[in-house]
Every structure is written in C-alpha cells, then in structure tokens.
Measured scan of single mutants.
Amino acid sequence: MLDDRARMEAAKKEKVEQILAEFQLQEEDLKKVMRRMQKEMDRGLRLETHEEASVKMLPTYVRSTPEGSEVGDFLSLDLGGTNFRVMLVKVGEGEEGQWSVKTKHQMYSIPEDAMTGTAEMLFDYISECISDFLDKHQMKHKKLPLGFTFSFPVRHEDIDKGILLNWTKGFKASGAEGNNVVGLLRDAIKRRGDFEMDVVAMVNDTVATMISCYYEDHQCEVGMIVGTGCNACYMEEMQNVELVEGDEGRMCVNTEWGAFGDSGELDEFLLEYDRLVDESSANPGQQLYEKLIGGKYMGELVRLVLLRLVDENLLFHGEASEQLRTRGAFETRFVSQVESDTGDRKQIYNILSTLGLRPSTTDCDIVRRACESVSTRAAHMCSAGLAGVINRMRESRSEDVMRITVGVDGSVYKLHPSFKERFHASVRRLTPSCEITFIESEEGSGRGAALVSAVACKKACMLGQ
C-alpha cells in the first residue's frame, strides 16, 4: 500500500517536472537572447534605426563620474514606483581627507489618484512632500541643488532636461508624456511658492545606482535594477552614441532593455503563462523582457503555473481556492519566502493557508518547484541581457580580458534567497573573457542622484555659470 502511494507521488512529481521543464533555458538559448539583445542595442544607438529599435539606448548626458572633490548639501528625489523618497545628502571631506556622503531620508507613498490623475496632481503632491521634508529638517530658507531620480523612459536633451516617452509600472498621470519632466517639477514648486529649489540633474535609477557604486569602486561602469521592473545602464564610447554629437570619451546610456521583445525577438521563448500575464497587464505587448524578470510579474506567473497544475490534477487534489483564482493573489514576496523555507515546509504551508488552501507535504514541495522554475528562468533571462552589455563593452574597448564592476539594486536581487547566485553564475558562463565584480548599492537611487548633481554643480562652477 505504502509502495503504491510512494509510486503515485513519484509519478505525480515526474509529471510536474515535465510541465515545469518549459521554463528551462539551455545555454544556447541564452546565447541567442544575448546576441539578439546586442543587435537591438546597436539599432538603438544608431541614428537611422533608433526610432524602430525596441531597446532605445537613451543617452543620459552623464559623462563624468564623481571624483571626490564636490562638497555641499544636496536634496535628492526618487520616483520610480508607488513609494517616493526625499533625501538630504551631505557631501563633504571625511576623516583623513576621505570623501564622505551622509544621508537623511523619508519615504512617502503615492496615492492612487496622483498616479493615475493628471501630471499637475502628481507633481503638486511631490512638491508637497518636499515642503514637508524641508519643514522637518528646518531647511526651507536654503535654496538647495536638487537631483531627481526618475525611473521611467526619458529622452534627455541635457542633464536637466528630459522628455517622458511613456509611463510604465502602473503610472498613468495624463499630460506628462511628451513633456519635460524637470519643467513639470519646477512648475509645481513655483505653484507652491513656499520654498526654492535648483533642479540641476535628472537621472534614471540605473544611472543613480551606477554612480553610487562608483563611489565604492571606481571600476563600476554598469548599473542595473532588478526590482519591480528590470533595466540597466553602462558607459558607452561616445563615438557609438549617434544621437549625441561628439566622439570623445564616454557617456552613460540608459538601455531601457525592459522593452526588448516588443518587436518579436522573444516570441519563441514566451510561454502561455507569459501571454496571460501580458494580456492582463496595463501595457499589453510592451516591456516583454521586463515581464519575464521583474517583481511586478513574478508572483503572478507562479500563480498561473499553480492553476495549470491544479487543472492537471497534480496539486491540491485538483481544487483551487477562490483566493488562488484571484489575479495578483500570489505576491512576489511569497516566491522569495517559499524558496527561503528551511525544509520543514512550515513557511510554505503558512503562505498557502493564507490563500485558503490546506496543502499536503507533496503540495508544498511542488509549489516550491514552481517558484524555483519561474525565478530561475528570470535570473537566466536577466543574465543574457547583462552578458550582452558586458561583452559589447569588452569588444568596443578591444580588451582581451576586461575587469568590470556592476552596481545592482532592486528588491528581487536583494531579497530573493537564490536569485543573485543563479544570476551571477549564468552571467559568468556567458562572459568567459571578463572578470566581473557585483556590488549592491546602498540607498543607491538617492545618493547617486545627489552625486550626479554634485558633478553638475562642479561643472557649472568651472564653466562660470
């Protein structure tokens, strides 16, 4: 009897593995994704193909990295998701002549009506938060230079001027797309009239992360975010950046690689679950690469896999709870928690219980395998993109072996128990001629924006502006 049951459990697990095998990517698959990513990057950089390229390769006008001589107080704003952060950054000489960066910050959550109302409502709310922060720190009387981390696709015309191309991540505030974001912020500050600010720089969160990590390690020339969304930036040779005049030196390019796949480059790798996630998203047909990796989508992918296993009578005796059938019910943090389970399955059992399920031991094991399959594919897909960037940098610099540091931020990278190990191992397999160091950014977005502002202020002083 026991043997029969054991055989049935083994057969069930084997069927589960057959279904989950769809998520496995072979090294040849990853090399294919990497080569296609490089081709799209090239198209994004070139003037004649930029418009139709899915990977936009947006110039950021960040050319210099901090040298350690900029000092002063800077205000930093960070808008990239449902939370908005205001930070005071003091850049100065530390002990023994070292450079020191001290920060104080406060988080504000953005109400739904500000995210989806008008641009005026959104930026009025942001300036209200700045006003509140300055009151708390008794700094209303000071006109501070301000660095703005704005983590949406922007076409820069200068370091302090950028046109919002399109909202992502659930934002829909009308009247912002096609307009200068810094102008919208300046107008809102003017409307309030109770404080003055000098907006000197606007950067993407990947750029802010790279600059913040450069402060720790001067070989950091790539910034990457794996959180709600997924994106990367890197220092490109100016001669390859056709959208900006000049051939000397390097400029940081914001790849906006989340949109890779929007022209069909990933079609052969998309599964039924991916198509369902895409169809029910706020932007169907867009940001397809990001939807395979980002935390906004990972939990939902797992939920759809679990429903398939229920329908195949391989999980929960073929019956799903009402909660499990509800879109968004299986949160991405559950994926991390399930994979963090120590082996007694308590954590998995508790999560499934909150979803109205009474799982068996085998159910718990199957749910864990589903989570591992989805998150491992995410790590491997992400590795193909980064390997594409790094191999490109090595080739354009004609280096036999390139040493490089990548600064990384984002909740999936930082909080998932195995993502970074799987990701690092896969990147290294795909970049055999590179020695890569990964560092995690601390308060990256805010500190990085302030350091970019410090560079901009120093330049302005040198130019006598």
Rank of each mutant, 00 (worst) to 15 (best):
N166A: 11
I211S: 15
R275Y: 14
G249C: 08
R191H: 11
G264K: 14
E9T: 09
C382G: 07
R303M: 06
T405G: 15
V62P: 00
H380W: 12
E93L: 09
E196I: 12
G175D: 05
A259Q: 08
S69L: 08
A176K: 00
Y214P: 11
G295R: 01
D160V: 02
G446V: 09
Q106A: 10
F74Y: 15
E245T: 10
N231S: 06
P284G: 08
R308L: 11
V244G: 03
K291T: 07
H424E: 13
M107I: 08
L45C: 05
K31P: 06
V241Q: 01
A384W: 00
G258V: 01
N283R: 14
L415M: 04
F74E: 01
V89T: 10
N350M: 05
R36H: 07
R394W: 04
E245K: 12
T362C: 11
H317A: 13
R43G: 05
P145R: 15
N254P: 02
R7E: 04
Q18R: 10
F74N: 03
N240S: 15
D42W: 13
G147E: 01
H156F: 01
A320R: 14
Q239M: 07
D3S: 12
M224I: 07
D113S: 10
L134I: 06
L134P: 01
N240D: 00
E93N: 07
V367N: 00
T82S: 09
S396V: 12
K56S: 08
S453Y: 05
L144F: 07
E312Q: 15
G388V: 06
S375W: 01
K296E: 15
D247C: 09
G162L: 01
A450L: 02
V335P: 06
D217C: 00
G410Y: 00
M393T: 09
D194I: 14
L134D: 03
T60S: 08
N391A: 08
K172S: 10
A425W: 11
P284R: 12
G229P: 01
Y61A: 01
H218G: 15
G80W: 04
V91Q: 06
M41V: 05
V226R: 02
D341N: 10
E22M: 04
S321E: 11
L314V: 14
G178D: 06
K296L: 05
D363Y: 03
S109W: 07
P111I: 05
T206E: 01
E256V: 02
D135Q: 09
S280Y: 09
V389N: 02
E395H: 07
E279T: 15
G388I: 02
G92P: 11
F148K: 02
P111R: 08
S69K: 15
I439R: 08
F133K: 04
Y349I: 03
L288Y: 14
K161A: 13
N179L: 07
M57D: 05
K296M: 09
R377I: 02
K420Y: 09
T118W: 02
L386K: 02
T342C: 14
D365C: 07
M41D: 00
S69H: 13
L58T: 01
V203P: 02
L88T: 07
A53R: 05
N240Q: 15
